[in-house]
Amino acid sequence: TTVKLGDIKVTFDNPEKAKKYAQKLAKIYQLTVHVHGDTIHVK
C-alpha cells in the first residue's frame, strides 16, 4: 500500500499502518485521505 502526498511516496507492507500514517499526515497538514485501491492519497 502506497501513501502519496505531493511528490512524497511511502510504501507499506501493512495496509493498516499505511492508513494510520496517512491519517497522521492528513492531521498535520490539515488535508483529507482518499483511498484508491492500493494507493492512499493525502490531499
Rank of each mutant, 00 (worst) to 15 (best):
T1R: 06
T1A: 07
T1G: 04
T1N: 04
T1L: 08
T2H: 09
T2G: 04
V3F: 00
V3N: 02
V3Q: 02
V3T: 02
V3P: 03
K4G: 03
D7Q: 14
D7N: 15
D7T: 14
D7M: 14
D7V: 14
D7P: 12
I8H: 14
I8L: 12
I8Q: 04
I8N: 05
K9F: 12
K9S: 13
K9Y: 14
V10L: 12
V10G: 01
V10F: 13
V10S: 02
V10C: 15
T11W: 14
T11Q: 11
T11C: 15
F12D: 00
F12L: 02
D13P: 07
D13C: 13
D13Y: 08
N14P: 01
P15L: 12
E16C: 10
E16N: 07
K17Y: 10
K17S: 12
A18W: 06
A18H: 01
A18M: 02
K19L: 15
K19H: 12
K20Q: 11
Y21T: 03
Y21E: 02
A22G: 01
A22T: 01
A22H: 01
Q23V: 08
Q23A: 11
K24E: 09
K24T: 09
K24Q: 10
K24S: 07
L25K: 01
L25N: 00
L25H: 00
A26V: 03
A26H: 02
A26I: 05
A26S: 05
K27R: 11
K27W: 09
K27A: 10
I28V: 07
Y29S: 04
Y29R: 03
Y29W: 07
Q30I: 06
L31R: 01
L31E: 03
L31Y: 04
L31F: 06
L31W: 04
L31K: 03
T32R: 05
T32Q: 10
T32N: 06
V33H: 00
V33I: 13
H34L: 12
H34D: 09
H34P: 00
V35C: 12
V35F: 11
V35I: 13
V35L: 09
H36Y: 12
H36N: 12
H36R: 10
H36D: 14
H36E: 15
D38E: 07
D38M: 10
T39M: 11
T39W: 07
T39N: 04
T39C: 12
I40W: 04
I40D: 01
I40Q: 01
H41F: 13
H41I: 14
H41E: 14
V42A: 02
V42C: 07
K43V: 15
K43P: 03
